[in-house]
Design a protein around this nucleic acid. Sequence first.
RNA 1: CGGGAUGUGGCGCAGUCCGGUUAGCGUACACGGCUGGGGGCCGUGUGGUCGCAGGUUCAAAUCCUGUCAUCCCGACCA
Length: 491
Amino acid sequence: MAKNLTTRSEDYSKWYNDLVIRADLAENSGVRGCMVIKPYGYAIWEKMQAELDRMFKETGHQNAYFPLFIPISYFSKEASHVDGFAKECAIVTHYRLKNADDGSGVVVDPEAKLEEELIVRPTSETIIWYTFRKWVQSYRDLPLLINQWANVVRWEMRPRLFLRTTEFLWQEGHTAHATKDEAIAEAELMLNIYTKFVEEFMAVPVIKGIKTDSERFAGALETYCIEALMQDGKALQAGTSHYLGQNFAKAFDVKFTDKEGKRDYVWATSWGVSTRLIGALIMTHSDDNGLVLPPKLAPDQVVIIPIYRNEEQLADVSKVAEQLMTELRSKGIRVKFDNRDTHKPGWKFNEYEFKGVPVRIAIGPKDVENGTVEIARRDTLTKELVPIEDAINKIVALMTEIQENLYNRAAQYRAENTTEVSGYEQFKKVLDTKGGFILAHWDGTNETEELIKNETKATIRCIPLDDENKPGSCMVTGKPSARKVLFAKAY
RNA sequence: CGGGAUGUGGCGCAGUCCGGUUAGCGUACACGGCUGGGGGCCGUGUGGUCGCAGGUUCAAAUCCUGUCAUCCCGACCA
């Protein structure tokens, strides 16, 4: 798989310049750390949105929309939450511009200073909990299962295209429950939905786990996450789901009356995935020829390219192509017939390879004569001549086959790049020479975690939720450890 | 905010050290012809106040000062 990609990926910017820009998904917008998502990139996001939205609704969630601006006073009600976000907020202080006295352009009108500053949401817990207070009185109002599709702004020091942009698109779910157990179950349910989406639709294998104290979401009691391994050996957090306990309910005074007539604070969760997932998709499957998209998310699953020398041949080829397109569409396959005469076939072959279209069909005069079509698959870069009557079944089968192949390939890569170590020296050596996921025992203290981070730049990605709870002793301190945890260098 | 680098047609770059004709190359774009089963070839053409503002000089993309922006490395992070 992607023989040169691993080395290329060590230089992150080159990787993106070569692949993302060439694949035409996004570009830097010129606004600090923000990006323009181009139509093809956005089409991928829309496919992701559609599938996630369906899964949310199937589990009883509803969409709503809350304001972009959050009064600073709301924001300061939950102490640990503000600690987590204070350093990366954009703040609105004025509401008007005026012409500069010296004619040099427009300046902020000092007269138009806001009484109370507004924060551009870095996440919406505060404004949503402010609102939830008005929506919840009785256990009959619960659970409240709300999702919002929105943009948020986090003024990070160091933005990275798709992975950490100043403004990004995401969905954020916010729920309120009558009991603690119900809230925990919700947080776990959403983690499972994310897992299902990322693995089944994106074909990206993930490890489910919980975050350590230091990596936990600001204001949460438990942060569940899914971690994926990119082709350059670095980990990427693909999604998080937080159990918030009663922290936000207490901060915003959201109480309800239960069946016995007792008043209590509600129990909460929040969960989100972002356009970072597009980055994960690219960085998991792409090769040196460009993007490789899983069929389930590809905006075009099949592209048909006609080959011809003159109008007459085009007419013959088009007849076969259009017939094929109609039949494929009736099977629910997204097909594009690219009969532009402004580009040559060779050009188109390359273009759709950059774009990662899973299956390419070429039809020329020879095929019309012989009753064949040429079918090429993006994941293996192989092509074969197939009798036209077998084409439909072949292509339908390829949709599943390519989807599975991508997942299996990524899973195999991850297996090959996951190492279990026992000692700290071995840990450092693996990290330096191989990278990837490393499983090792840890004594559970912040101090040890911090020490490892400072010395190696590796962090604990999560404490995995799988069944392998074999106790041992910490690789650094030798103190007892309940189980191995997952380390990696991360984006 | 610390360290490093870069700003030159739409995009990617050379030229800058050592100032000197009309600022050059690739690509893209437009037109014509040959082409067309993996980014084809030939020809013609459009497009640049060299990031911005000062300064030095007979002369500045090139030297000096200032300034702005972007990118990379670090602290921060979905």
